[in-house]
Design a protein around this nucleic acid. Structure first.
Lengths: 230, 230
DNA sequence: ACAAAAGTGTTGACATTACACCCATGC
DNA sequence: GCATGGGTGTAATGTCAACACTTTTGT
């Protein structure tokens, strides 16, 4: 039991939101203290001694931005010895997903200056946080093929096209609308809602669907392989 | 920058090996000090202040068991506040894979008593290490579908049946021998070797193959989806 | 009427499943 | 020659990719 070990630990989050209009956006907060003062960094910070890692992330997101993530998952710990100039600091990195309707930043709700940035146009980043974001997206690309995480980024009711565009954006390739609809409907994971999209900017209003979580669980229980996206 | 944070960090490994004869085995070392003295635990230990996480794992595996892992990958950090009675101790957990030919334990090569245990018949485990092993296997089940990690658990030259049995064991279901061969050969990832298996216990000697890593990289580069196992 | 987005069906290519017999070797 | 595991083909089915026109709405 080493008395001499001196490693500090932060719990940080790559908070992501998606809209067809803006693509994937990541929530950053401007650092107000050194090191890397005035650069942008991931919401997060030092874990308290008795605090679970996930609780720390939720607390930091709330304090720095006023938001509450709908989904949170740890994905990797960054531990390169030189990643923080203050000394050895591990970063337990999480992916947090938030629905567009819950992602509005209310000025003054958090203690820091926080802002959504397009994932493909990041500002000058603190520490190795650009790497962390890149790793988070790569992790998502793996997870979204088989896990219904995309639905954590959409509002409760959504048009199929929104889901499709999410996948198109993430894998950066065009998807055939007809084939996508066929596949997603054959899986039976979507339930049609009464309503149609109210205010399309242009064009025919879309049918709205919700994710049938129950159905998904049933398929999983039965061991049916569920591949949402190839 | 909290002077009051007091969290210690270990880097631990679920070291796995596979043979058709014994299935998946995990390398455990017997604890010689409290807490959980005389129980079995994962090889691993406290990270040094300037030491990368992976280096710490390799060092601990070597010191405790005398072995050297062929493949090492971090997969999750366990951080529940009460998981260690000594106080807050995070466990950065890794999966390590080792080939059968490199997995023989030489008594006295490590400082501790180390032993291979069948993954399905674990002894009394220290800390939450049984959970860590379960999570590692679940992680492997996801990774082995698309990543060529199975080849890190086989010797350089192996019969197809060995690969097949590895997948059968991990996913705990029978696989059709003919279909498996067809699929794996169509992917083109195996190169036939000159030799055949020398000393089969019984039956016809098997053709030996090696993993064509180059070919795999080419497919990846081209963006061809490579699904090794459904 | 025009612009914009939503909805929809068929076909050919390919991949997956299910299934049974012969082959090479050691004893 | 017998026991053991290795090697192989075909037919039916299901899945995926490619492809274009019509519908509904707002302006």
């Amino acid at each position: 039991m080493p008395v001499h070990q001196h490693i500090r630990v932060t719990s940080d989050a790559v908070v992501l939101r998606f809209t067809a209009k803006d693509g994937f956006m990541v929530l950053l907060s401007k650092r107000s203290i050194p090191p890397h003062i005035f650069k942008w960094g991931l919401p997060g910070g030092f874990v308290r001694n008795e605090e679970p890692l996930e609780a720390a992330v939720h607390r930091e997101i709330r304090d720095e931005t006023g938001l509450r993530a709908d989904y949170l998952e740890q994905f990797r710990t960054f531990g390169a010895p030189e990643r923080d100039p203050r000394g050895r600091v591990l970063c337990v990195a999480h992916i947090a997903l938030i629905r567009p309707s819950a992602s509005r930043l209310i000025p003054g709700a958090g203690n820091k200056e926080a802002k959504w940035y397009p994932v493909r146009e990041l500002p000058q980043m603190a520490f190795d946080h650009a790497d962390v974001i890149a790793a988070a997206l790569e992790h998502l690309r793996v997870r979204l093929r088989n896990e219904p995480l995309a639905f954590e980024m959409l509002d409760a009711k959504f048009p199929v096209s929104e889901l499709e565009k999410l996948y198109e954006w993430l894998y950066d390739r065009p998807v055939d609308r007809r084939n996508f609809q066929k596949k997603i409907h054959n899986l039976g994971l979507l339930s049609a809602e009464q309503e149609k999209l109210k205010h399309p900017l242009q064009g025919r209003p879309a049918q709205l669907y919700s994710f049938n979580r129950q159905k998904f669980s049933e398929l999983r229980e039965k061991g049916t392989p569920v591949e949402i996206f190839a």
